[in-house]
Design a protein around this nucleic acid. Structure first.
Lengths: 256, 256
DNA sequence: CGTTGGTTTGATTAATGTCAACGCACGTGG
DNA sequence: CCACGTGCGTTGACATTAATCAAACCAACG
């Protein structure tokens, strides 16, 4: 199977063959996590970096009042904790939604990656897109009603999956219950259900047995106010001309 | 006046004197922006990095339906667009809320900073805290009612201002209208008002003429479910022992 | 003074949550 | 093979919460 990670990263700019070889290497030692399992929990001290190869995972927090909030989805090709080097403690948990195939990358391996300019730049960019996605989610929760909110999420997931070759023709598997969708959107499960019904009644989507079909991407995007600019992928054409200096992150000697 | 930037960055770890000197230098050429002025707008191609020295700024988006959503506050000591090097286009706007004193840092200057290991690590850490803050805001919007939501925000702002020596004794100026608060919290201005009244009636805060007093930080934090772990400042003690290798980001030769 | 921008309040409407029940598909064990 | 339990989705009735509309108020400022 094609390496999804390479496919995703190259959307942000081409990588030399040597970098791709490294990535191919890294992806070899993967491990299956069952659905609804924590990969790392709030309070843990992170050690390795995790990379999702297959399946859906999420960042989430459980609140004191018994509710929970999902703050991000991690799809195939996404890194979980590149911040391993800087933050001493997880301030949230990462868990699987479906069964996942996950690579556990030891720190030296990451440093090896960061020593390569093109790769380092690309990883940085992926991180910034994650951040932009968080901002868009805030917009979504703050200023869009339930149906548009869910529609927007579906547009985003569709686009992100398309970037790694999983969504085809607006059709993809969404291995998530409506309760989990509710915990993502800040709504009740009942209301999520009604919003989904409404999206169906308007012929914007189809959804059965966790199989989503976006019937008309344009119509759904317009309905939900979805603009993909925050994903910054744009075929990567203008990307190249930008920033005449490229960056690499290299290891220096220990300070302690 | 003390350099707020240095004060903030050193919460994440000590900096060598040479780094502090560089920061002192950088801060010299600042510029005043009037209240409610864009520093940079959605769609713009970012060039320089901006640093807030004084005043409140925010990231925001205007939506098609005429509403807007504020996604982050930038307080004194905060950088606005460290992503300048990687993303080609702003996917949101940054504007002042109050009058602001802003430094405009040219790219080479930033590279100079990133060449210094301690400084680079610290800047990276600040970026990660920004990201964690975005996640916490999602939790806030998704799973906390209006009064708790606003209370949580006030706790956060108080703590962040305290970190740079602006908030003293839970007392600080919040140069923001209730409409802007509403655009931050995803609520109507009327409802924000009622929630504020409620916080006052419970003797959790005082607020007049944009002067906030948190009457009992512990009580407010408990009420709002505020846990500051996501700000990762913790006096920076354990921070040091973490990550035996430190990182620096250095310029490499141009790729184009 | 009169105007302006922001806050506060009340009345009403609309949106969302909660509670409870039912249905359906699936798997399990008798 | 069937009875049963379980998890999820769906629906309706109702309670609660928040938005909207409108007006009054208040301090600052020309």
């Amino acid at each position: 199977m094609e390496n999804r990670l390479i496919r995703k990263l190259e959307l942000f700019g081409p990588l030399p063959d040597s970098d791709k070889k490294l990535l191919d290497d890294i992806v070899k030692n993967s491990q299956i996590y069952a659905a609804h399992t924590d990969i790392i929990s709030e309070g843990d001290i992170p050690t390795n970096v995790h990379l999702i190869l297959e399946g859906f995972a999420c960042r989430y927090k459980n609140l004191a009042n018994g509710t929970r909030q999902i703050m991000a989805y991690m799809l195939p090709g996404d890194f979980c904790d590149l911040h391993v080097f800087v933050l001493r403690q997880m301030d949230h948990s990462i868990g699987t939604l479906s069964q996942c195939d996950v690579v556990d990358i030891p720190r030296p391996r990451i440093l090896e990656m960061l020593e390569r300019p093109a790769l380092a730049r690309t990883l940085w960019m992926a991180t910034l897109v994650d951040e932009a996605t968080l901002r868009e989610w805030i917009v979504n929760m703050g200023r869009r009603g339930p149906a548009k909110r869910i529609g927007h999420l579906l547009c985003e997931i569709n686009m992100r999956l398309k970037m790694v070759g999983i969504s085809i023709d607006g059709r993809f598997r969404l291995p998530i219950t409506q309760v989990e969708l509710a915990d993502t959107m800040g709504l009740s499960n009942v209301h999520v259900n009604r919003a989904l019904m409404m999206l169906r009644k308007r012929d914007l989507i189809t959804l059965e047995k966790q199989e989503v079909v976006i019937l008309d991407a344009g119509k759904l995007e317009e309905f939900a106010g979805f603009t993909p600019n925050y994903l910054h992928f744009s075929g990567g054409k203008e990307e190249q001309s930008r920033s005449s200096e490229s960056l690499s992150i290299v290891r220096t000697k220990a300070s302690a």
